[in-house]
Design a protein around this nucleic acid. Structure first.
Length: 727
DNA sequence: AGTCTTAGTATGTAGACAGCATGTC
DNA sequence: CTACATACTAAGACT
């Protein structure tokens, strides 16, 4: 099917033709036949890299041409960015909205295509964002993530909410191959396109004793090194390809990269790689990062969430450009960006999962990783290889993974805790005003669609409503369910009601305040992933609790202390960060990577913000201190620097430099004079600082004049600020 | 004596969404 | 409740 013949606006067609794309791939043509251009919903369950995105893009452009608006839901922020770049510059207005990124936010609704994560869309719904009603096409990327235990329910709820609100909404759901595509399509009222077709031939095989066994035959692999995984990797490099190795732990990822680096030393030399290594070394703070630099210099790299984003992106870029030959990675790369390689080695098929010990990875995940093999237009074929430990397991691996269908997608709505937050949001946002309304909504979910009896769900609904009523987040008067001001706030803050209750409960009971106490409570909630405990941690944790245990708001439990210790450890790390302990020392002390540190800081900042809002509601006296902590945490500064960072252009580093030079607040800064500041921070920064003071003075004069109208406004908001459920 | 090898044992384990209001080095 | 690879340790074997 020719792209030029499709009913889409010219810019997209021209763009495709420039790229040399003139015909649709067979699965894409099937989507056209199924009616994507006539507004029909569709579930597209086809392999990775077989052109799902273009299907969505065609449908979106057609919608926009008819005056429609499109919402594109992705699972990861990094993916949102990737799609944003991909969709931009083709004659439609594209906007992006994720937690850490809000480009063009004021006019977000003015865009034709808006890309957002599922949680962000849920948050937009909870805040009654008006333009959501104008959406005519919903694209859900990776819709099989409905089966994800922690984030699946949100995705399921968001889809259900949007379809509930918008009649005739066209839904295009994109998915990897799954076990029950028909079921999912039926739920969405969608047509179904499935296919095994791929643009590059994919050979899946099992390596054993120097040979890869494929369905189509065998392939010999040379054995220049002692280890099989490395031999497989070198084999592809020698052939001119790149290699992606999936392993089950960070340590393994680093270990493999080191071994590969030693083997590559004689083979790969490149000035570009040297430059990458130098760039990393320049800002490296930990040993781990120095190792990474050494590896990259030879063309190998490791990739996991302990690395800072900057380095991860550098590795991805280096691999895409073909400079880096081999990446050993934890599942970070499996679900993330589009990084194909000629050979993918799925080395570890077991992964540690808390309750289950070492458990085999799901078939769906294997397929996702295997699908990474083969770069379209660049590789003659792609190879996905597992490694067998004995003759017998060759057969087993074929059966268990290569020839096995992926798991069916199953709703996770009944998982403990998942529903409570969503029920609150349904009530607070007016999707349901009584129990009947809730049931009516819940039968529309995928859970409701796949379960004839809602008994299991009803039990959880009753429990959750009981909790929400007892904690006064909702009231039930007669039949009427309504969110209280507290409940509405919790819903909008997007925290788990359990976390909200833990935080406000602790604050209500507290006699004093300390940052540590608040941090520990916040770190004990499910919204804050706590650090793992290691044996060496026990010593200093016990010492800390002996000295400061009484200052905490939560009591040290008598038994089952692990959870508590973990929250204390996490709080101590964050406390060190606001105490301006250098990154390298924190990383070493708590055995985390810079990426983990960054993640913990952004996460806790969000929760402290929520805590500050809750404090304003329940403990006004604590609110100023909590708000201060919010700034301290986000900036990584001690309280003494607070007056300085209020100034534009002053962050943690400059503030510290000023402070150490005896300049402790804006007033002394102004007194010190331009020349003195120039000598500390340079003339550029000094100039912008002093121009701020001039602006401020003129603004203050204006504010004095407007003071009276400001007051009126405040009175109005408090007069009408009790719920505001109308839209 | 110093180095390598081996067997036994202790240890630790993937990832990442959300608020809010704008500007770090 | 489930496992495994790796790092470390101590003791033995070799140059």
């Amino acid at each position: 099917m020719k792209i030029a013949s499709l009913p889409v606006p010219a810019p997209l067609i021209e763009y495709c033709e420039e790229k040399g794309i003139t015909d649709l791939y067979p699965p894409q043509a099937a989507c056209v036949d199924e009616g994507i251009f006539s507004g029909k919903s569709l579930l597209v369950a086809i392999p990775t890299a077989s052109g799902k995105t273009l299907v969505a893009e065609l449908a979106m452009h057609a919608q926009v041409a008819n005056g429609g608006k499109c919402l594109y839901i992705v699972p990861l922020r990094a993916l949102a960015g990737e799609k944003f770049r991909e969709f931009s510059g083709k004659g439609v207005k594209v906007g992006i909205s994720t937690g850490d990124l809000d480009r063009r936010d004021e006019f977000l609704g003015a865009n034709d295509i808006i890309i957002a994560t599922s949680e962000k869309v849920d948050s937009l719904l909870r805040n009654k964002t008006p333009w959501l009603r104008q959406v005519t096409l919903l694209v859900v990327d990776e819709v099989h993530l409905i089966a994800s235990p922690d984030r699946g329910p949100t995705l399921e709820m968001v889809i259900t909410k949007l379809r509930y609100r918008i009649p005739n909404l066209q839904v295009i759901a994109l998915s990897a191959t799954i076990g029950n595509p028909k079921k999912l399509a039926d739920w969405l009222g969608a047509g179904l396109v499935t296919s095994e077709w791929r643009p590059v031939d994919l050979r899946q095989g099992v390596f054993y004793r120097g040979k890869i066994h494929f369905h189509q035959g065998e392939r010999e692999v040379a054995e220049p090194s002692k280890t099989e995984d490395l031999n497989l990797c070198i084999d592809t490099i020698e052939e001119g390809g790149q290699c992606l190795v999936f392993v089950n732990s960070r340590r393994n990822a680093e270990g493999f990269a080191k071994r590969a680096a030693a083997a590559f030393k004689k083979r790969v030399k490149s000035p570009v790689l040297e430059e990458y290594a130098a760039r990393i070394l320049e800002s490296a703070t930990t040993d781990q990062e120095k190792v990474l630099a050494a590896c990259i210099a030879t063309g190998s790299a490791f990739h996991h969430a302990g690395l800072r984003r900057e380095f991860r992106e550098l590795i991805e870029e280096g691999f895409l450009k073909g400079e880096i030959r081999c990446i050993s990675s934890t599942p970070t790369l499996a679900a993330g960006l589009n990084l194909p390689a000629r050979r993918v080695i799925i080395r570890d098929l077991l992964r540690f999962s808390g309750a289950e010990g070492m458990a085999p990875i799901p078939v769906g995940e294997y397929h996702q990783m295997a699908g990474r093999a083969g770069r379209p237009h660049l590789d003659p074929y792609g190879e996905a290889v597992m490694i067998a430990k004995n003759e017998q397991s060759i057969e087993e691996l074929f059966e268990r993974y290569i020839d096995a269908p992926a798991e069916p997608v199953v709703s996770q709505c009944t998982r403990s805790g998942a529903l409570c937050s969503h029920l609150l949001s349904l009530i607070a946002t007016g999707f349901a005003t009584d129990r009947k309304g809730l049931s009516k909504f819940l039968v529309q979910t995928f859970y409701g669609f796949t379960h004839a009896s809602t008994k299991a769900l009803d039990t959880i609904v009753n429990q959750s409503l009981k909790f929400l009523t007892e904690t006064e987040m909702i009231t039930e008067i007669g039949d009427l369910l309504q969110a209280t001001e507290y409940g509405a706030l919790v819903s909008r803050l997007y925290i788990d009601p359990l976390s909200a209750e833990a935080i406000s409960g602790a604050m209500l009971e507290a006699d004093g305040y300390s940052d540590r106490a608040l941090l520990q409570v916040v770190c004990s909630t499910s919204d804050m992933p706590a650090l793992y405990l290691k044996s060496k941690d026990l010593q200093y944790l016990e010492k800390f609790l002996y000295e400061h245990g009484d200052d905490l708001w939560q009591q040290v439990p008598w038994e089952d202390r692990e959870q508590f210790y973990r929250s204390v450890k996490t709080a101590m790390l964050l406390s060190d960060y606001t105490d301006e302990v250098p990154e390298a020392i924190i990383c070493e002390r708590y055995d985390v990577g810079p990426g983990d540190l960054y993640a913990a800081v952004t996460n806790v900042t969000w929760l402290i913000h929520a805590a500050a809002r809750l404090a304003a509601m329940f403990r006004e006296d604590l609110a100023p201190a909590v708000r201060e902590l919010e700034i301290c945490t986000s900036q990584g500064i001690r309280r003494e620097l607070l007056p300085l960072v209020r100034l534009k252009g002053i962050g943690r580093v400059r503030a510290r430099r000023l402070f150490n030079n005896g300049i402790t607040d804006p007033a002394t800064l102004q007194e010190a004079g331009f020349d003195r500041i120039t000598s500390i921070l340079g003339s550029g920064v000094a100039k912008s600082l002093f121009s701020q003071f001039d602006e401020k003075e003129t603004k203050e004069r204006k504010d004095d004049l407007q003071g009276s109208s400001e007051l009126v406004k405040k009175a109005q908001t408090s007069l009408f600020g009790f719920g505001g459920c109308d839209e």
